[in-house]
Design a protein around this nucleic acid. Structure first.
Length: 518
RNA sequence: GGUCCCUUCGUCUAACGGUUAGGACAUAUGGUUUUCAUCCAUAAAAUAGGAGUUCGAUUCUCCUAGGGACUACCA
């Protein structure tokens, strides 16, 4: 494929929805696969819905995911400007071309007039379509029924007008979509869409076509919600005499349960993010959670997003960005909508967490520890001089607990006992495992442990086990209370490894504390 | 209502017109871990329905049903 240029063209009306992120990703993957260019264009033609920090949010999101645009605002501005609000003159010139060639016309109908027209049709069981059915019947006021002089007079008088596309009559338009194949549309059902609004701004349809052409976009990869307007777009290219790009309409991302496409509400209800980054609405000060802040890695998000509507055709499920670029292609994208599955995204996250090195994870975990320790210190929890938390120690801890975690934020709960002695003991476990004679037994164990010089887990294990066996004490009587003393609960990694980690002195101190308090 | 798109286990999906319809998530049951989690194994689980084309249909065609999108001077 030669000279691939694709674009992601969001509207800066708020945070980028996960469906939009997937569209961006597929565009990015397609571009990179064919050594093409990924363009980010800001479609801010609707002044009413513009949100100031949204554009920054879009850039931050793509940066976090590692799929930045090659060309955009302030970056390789070969075909700039990349904000549609800064391209008004271009659209004006182009709409004039359409007006001159007779493919577009002025319309002076007010919103109220059209509303009335729609209602009237509805009452008669008909659908109102603003096109050849009625545009020249005289009920509608436009430059097709008005004389040139009248039109000029109305415009001069400052009367509001829009410019509409003159859609063709009696034609079966045959189009091709890379994902869906041939699609046929009867042009008689198309209405004459507004191309230019009365506020002097183009609508999406006009701006989009003009920009895609001027920016030399080769493939338009966008959501399925645009499929119904594909005919209009093809017709516009034809009216301009331009070659249309190829189109690929991506399947929608659906709600995990119930009907319809995934929305912010679903995330709130079911407890998962719908946005890549957390976002605060400046007006309402309402904050929406983001994948980043919830502890997901960018590669996790990339991977599960890629598998929503696409698959490699093999049984491999874990893909790095480079592997995705290599394997991705539009011909393996599905036609049908994909239900979003928060469980599977967690599974991906767990996989990526396991892949990370102890070193890398320790680095992420260290600030958390510092924070928790400070908290504990202020709560007067730390009473002993036990504060083992150098880098190597943290790495070892991470190595022992990471397999039971999905997020770095799970680490503290899984490993607090490596840093501070238990402050309380799991009541149920105490009741079940700490019997009358247990204190005595633990005292004996303390004596045994005191004699151990080489305090490695394997050596402690050997000696403790020998002691249990030769005295016929039973593992079930010794090990559970031993764990209770060191951990405070019946959970955690291998007990002898824990003992080695916290050291002989701390082990004994925790046991004595348990004996006196239980 | 109208137009268009879609339809394989609960979910995401695989299967040049010929497979015991495969995998993953979730679920269940065992095993490992003298704890908990992980991990491992096993099980249950699908071609929406009906015609047609064909020696043979998950795959091609049509109809029905269901789902979805669009139907703004929003994108």
């Amino acid at each position: 494929m030669t000279n691939v240029r694709v674009r992601f063209a969001p509207s800066p009306t708020g945070p980028l929805h996960i469906g939009g992120v997937r569209t961006a990703l597929f565009n990015y993957l397609f571009a990179k696969k064919y050594n093409g260019t990924f363009v980010l264009r800001i479609e801010d033609t609707d002044q009413n819905r513009y949100v100031a920090n949204a554009e920054q949010y879009i850039n931050d999101s793509l940066d976090w995911l590692g799929i930045p645009a090659d060309e955009t605002v302030n970056k390789n501005e070969k075909f700039g400007p990349y904000r549609q609000s800064e391209r008004k003159d271009i659209y004006k010139k182009n709409i004039q071309e359409l007006l001159d060639s007779g493919n577009a016309y002025y319309a002076f109908d007010t919103a109220e007039d059209l509303d009335k027209e729609r209602k009237g049709h509805e009452e008669n069981g008909k659908t109102f379509i603003y096109n050849w059915h009625n545009r020249e019947k005289g009920r509608l006021i436009n430059s097709l029924v008005l004389t040139t002089d009248e039109v000029q007079k109305r415009i001069k008088n400052g009367e509001k007008y829009v410019i509409r596309f003159k859609s063709p009559q009696d034609e079966i338009l045959v189009m091709n979509d890379i994902i869906r194949g041939e699609i046929k549309i009867d042009t008689n059902i198309l209405d004459d869409k507004i191309l230019f609004k009365s506020d002097g701004m183009p609508t999406y349809h006009l701006a989009n076509i003009v920009d895609d052409h001027l920016m030399e976009i080769s493939h338009v990869i966008r959501g399925e919600e645009w499929l119904p307007s594909m005919a209009l777009h093809i017709l516009l290219y034809r009216s301009f005499g331009w070659k249309a790009p190829e189109f690929a309409h991506l399947p929608l991302i659906l709600k995990p349960t119930g009907k319809g496409k995934l929305s912010k509400r679903d995330g709130d209800k079911l407890g998962f993010p719908v946005f890549p980054l957390a976002y605060t609405n400046e007006a309402t000060e309402e904050t929406s959670r983001g994948y980043k802040e919830d502890g997901y890695f960018p590669e996790t998000v990339l991977n599960f997003l890629a598998f929503l509507g696409w698959n490699p055709g093999t049984e491999q499920e874990i893909f790095s960005l480079n592997e995705l670029i290599k394997s991705f292609d539009l011909d393996r994208v599905n036609k049908s909508g994909a239900r979003f599955d928060p469980d599977k995204t967690k599974w991906y996250q767990q996989q990526y967490l396991q892949q990370k090195s102890d070193e890398e994870l320790a680095e992420m975990f260290t600030p958390v520890i510092a924070n928790e320790m400070k908290q504990s210190a202020s709560d007067n929890v730390i009473t002993s001089s036990f504060t083992p938390r150098n880098g190597e120690y943290v790495q070892k801890v991470v190595g022992l607990i990471k397999e039971r975690a999905t997020f770095v934020s799970d680490f503290w709960e899984l490993s607090a006992f490596f840093f501070i002695a238990p402050t309380e003991y799991d009541a149920k476990a105490v009741k079940k495992k700490w019997k009358e004679k247990t204190g005595k037994l633990m005292n004996q164990l303390v004596a045994v442990i005191s004699t151990i010089d080489n305090f490695s887990s394997s050596n402690i294990e050997k000696i403790v086990k020998e002691w249990i066996t030769t005295n016929e004490l039973g593992f079930g009587k010794v090990m559970p209370p031993f764990r209770l003393a060191l951990v405070g609960a019946m959970s955690g990694p291998d007990l002898f490894k824990i003992a080695e980690m916290i050291g002989k002195e701390e082990t004994i101190s925790r046991m004595e504390k348990a004996i006196t308090s239980l």
